[in-house]
Amino acid sequence: MSFKNFKCVPKMIFGRGSFVDLDLVLSEERQSTDDFVVFLVDDVHQDKPLAGRVPVKNHDLLIYVNVDDEPSTKQVDALTEQVQAFNTKHPVSVVGLGGGSTLDLAKAVSLMLTNPGGSAMYQGWDLIKHPAVHHIGIPTVSGTGAEASRTAVLCGPVRKLGLNSDHTVFDQIIMDSELIDGVSTDQWFYTGMDCYIHCVESLQGTFLNEFAKSFAEKSMDLCREVYINDHAEKDDKLMMASYMGGMSIAYSQVGACHAVSYGLGYVLGYHHGIGNCIVFDVLEDFYPEGVAEFRTMVKKHNITIPKGICTDLPDETIAKMVKVAKSMGPLWENVYGPTWEEKVTDEMLTALYRRM
């Protein structure tokens, strides 16, 4: 028997106002006068105060990225080409500043600068051959766990699937809870629920072990303090819940909600957070206690979960979503164990989608 040998983020800074340390962190990577850094910044920050605080030097490359749509292999390849056209040498670091989608783009670009071919070639588990360029993640929305995870989730030509590898993990993260102030209530809720759902799926999964359980239980407690108790330090707590939720699935796996949500995101374009909420709301047969608590949080924060989005869709559209969801073998194994293929039928998945 062999045990999982996974990599976690080696360096991290946590604390309100810690974004100021980014320049110092980058100065350690800048060794010569022509070294440059690539900043991938969510375009919601363009012309906002945070944009003026990004420590860009004259010869650096700052790209505002749009993540209105889910990140795609096409977008990653275009960004990689833009960096390569800017300078023939590698940047000393790629910095992602934004929500989970922006962080995933930064991880993916840092990988594609050192691995030949298009990013769609590397969708899957442990297909990356060469270490990435040094990369830093700075979340401005909390919940996805992208800052902690070994995946960069992308919509590709065939399906939505991550670049899952030890090389994907950030070299450095900065968790400054001041940066998540001002996120819209809906965004704050949907993204935070991604974290809560990570924990539910981890704790109910067949892959559960004390490592995953310890992180998931603490992350779930923090989510309750944020979304049920409105704790005074809720931004700090959500930031740590997000990190711990990401760590909880590092040694286990997500489950039914994420598998079904991938189909929803790939075919209908729903963002990951809201997609998870739409799916989770119909999974009471899988996670009865989690769904009940989720609905309590939805009601408390006056969140509207879209309904009826799949009711009248053509059968072939539903079939496409079913195909994507069904391809998530490791996730379904976490739900049902090694005999998952007997349980995960087209009929079962079709019925779930038709309820959304």
Rank of each mutant, 00 (worst) to 15 (best):
S142R: 15
V282C: 02
D186Q: 12
E201F: 04
V324R: 14
K300S: 03
K299F: 09
R295N: 14
N334S: 06
T296K: 12
F211R: 13
M348L: 12
W340A: 07
T191H: 03
S214T: 04
S93C: 05
A106Y: 07
K300Y: 10
E81T: 14
A108M: 03
T206I: 03
L26Q: 06
A85C: 15
D77M: 02
P71S: 11
H167S: 08
V344D: 01
K234Y: 04
C8T: 12
F86S: 01
G52K: 05
H301W: 03
S93M: 01
M121F: 14
A212K: 05
A259H: 10
D285F: 08
H272I: 03
F3N: 13
T311P: 11
V169P: 00
H231A: 15
G124L: 04
Y353P: 00
P314V: 09
Y251V: 07
T345C: 01
D68I: 14
V158N: 14
V291I: 11
M321Q: 08
N302K: 08
G162Y: 01
T114W: 15
A351R: 11
F211E: 11
A78S: 14
K11A: 11
Y287T: 00
K74S: 15
V153D: 00
M1R: 12
F19Y: 02
A319P: 01
V282I: 11
T80E: 03
E284A: 06
